[in-house]
């Protein structure tokens, strides 16, 4: 397994790592950077638990070859509470009871973040669409959708 130097922005900081460029971004994040907040639910892009932002767009990190992030910017769930604070999206998730087992939660939060970056005032339909690639078995999505709506309000009123 040949390794290559991969340089990219990770949660706002420049990083460099020697890694197999054909292994997944998900494994790179979890194994090389110990960023275990990004979860592996299927490894096939079918559940969204591994959602991270790549240049501000939600992507399945399990489907991204590590080499692809060279020169780009990756953001994981850990970026949202970097300085010990909590993001309004996370606050809203807790407030609305949107977290049950929590395994889909980091991916959901990242999909919500991608949505609100692009569309600060989404309607319920747009919210459903934005998380349609994130499976959740516990919640039936209702409290998650309510949380994202609440988060939009929180961010906009700031």
């Amino acid at each position: 397994m040949e390794k290559e130097l991969i340089k990219f922005m990770l949660n706002g900081e420049p990083v460099e790592v020697y890694n197999d460029p054909a292994s997944s971004l998900l494994h790179l994040l979890r194994e090389k950077f110990s960023l275990t907040g990004t979860k592996e639910g299927c490894g096939e892009g079918e559940c969204g638990a591994c959602t991270v932002l790549l240049d501000d767009l939600a992507v399945n990190s399990c489907l991204i070859p590590a080499g692809k992030v060279n020169g780009r910017s990756v953001e994981t769930i850990e970026a949202l509470s970097k300085d010990g604070g909590v993001d309004p999206i996370q606050e809203a998730f807790v407030e609305k009871g949107a977290v049950q087992c929590g395994f889909c939660t980091p991916g959901m939060v990242m999909s919500a973040r991608a949505l609100l970056k692009q569309n600060p005032d989404p309607d319920p339909e747009e919210i459903k669409m934005a998380i349609s690639g994130n499976l959740c078995r516990c919640t039936g999505y209702k409290q998650i959708e309510a949380a994202i709506l609440l988060a939009a309000g929180k961010i906009n009123s700031k």
Binding site: V86, V99, C101, T105, I127, K142
Partner: peptide, 27 residues
Amino acid sequence: TGIVESPVKIDPRVAFQSPEVWAKVTG
């Protein structure tokens, strides 16, 4: 498709969540 809020009124005194949700929501 609207996000339907339940007609059940949530009593905030009984809407407690374990602090573990913060660990979950922050990854």
